[in-house]
């Protein structure tokens, strides 16, 4: 390799990095605001969907589950508290399942929504289906239990995805509610055991 080669190779790399960096910078400047705006909007829409009656949903504070940072919110209507929303994680089969849970003032589940997960496609991802999520509505901490048979009082596991179902119900939702009860200090009735 001659000196000329070395200079040419250096020049090659410098030019490529400069042009590449420039292109990436332009694309990033164009796309990142859209991305962040959409991500923030998604969260807001997800919160609103859980408690459609609320006219204001405010952040109350932060908490941690599975060493992950989550937040919880209070939902108000005409200045009266009508419920809470808490973000929680459940340890699933192949991922942590990111969940939003809305509860009423008695800490009974109103609705949940799955924000993100990487469970098995076709099996575990059925946790996103309404048929599963609707089962949790109206349940308090004591009835958040996965059973394998048909049930009204408890939550029936998705066939082939017991671990994912359990992660949502008995980990994310139950721990989230337990935390709310502990923190907001109301109703001793739902406080069964701390699974943390």
């Amino acid at each position: 390799m001659t000196g000329k080669d070395i200079i040419k190779i250096t020049l090659n790399l410098v030019v490529i990095y400069l042009i590449g960096g420039l292109i990436l910078a332009v694309v990033y400047a164009k796309t990142s605001p859209i991305m962040f705006k959409k991500a923030a909007l998604e969260k807001e829409v997800a919160l609103k969907k859980l408690i459609p009656d609320a006219d204001a949903i405010e952040k109350l504070g932060d908490w941690y589950i599975h060493d992950k940072h989550s937040e919880y919110f209070v939902a108000r209507k005409n200045n009266a508290v009508i419920g809470y929303v808490i973000q929680s994680f459940g340890k699933g089969y192949s991922s942590y399942i990111d969940t939003l849970i809305a509860v009423d003032t008695d800490f009974k589940v109103i609705k949940i929504s799955i924000l993100g997960h990487a469970e098995t496609p076709g099996l575990g991802d059925e946790i996103e289906a309404d048929t599963f999520k609707n089962q949790l509505a109206g349940k308090d901490a004591e009835h958040l239990k996965i059973v394998q048979t048909e049930t009204v009082d408890y939550v029936q596991a998705i066939s082939g995805a017991t671990i994912s179902s359990r992660a949502v119900t008995e980990d994310a939702v139950k721990n989230g509610i337990a935390f709310l009860i502990k923190t907001l200090g109301e109703g001793g009735h739902g406080r069964k055991k701390d699974t943390e």
Binding site: L24, S32, K38
Partner: peptide
């Protein structure tokens, strides 16, 4: 070169096809 264009595609998808 390839990774540069992949990053462009990646950022575009993150923004427009979330």
């Amino acid at each position: 070169i390839i990774s540069g264009w992949v990053t462009v595609a990646d950022m575009a998808m993150a923004a427009y096809a979330r």
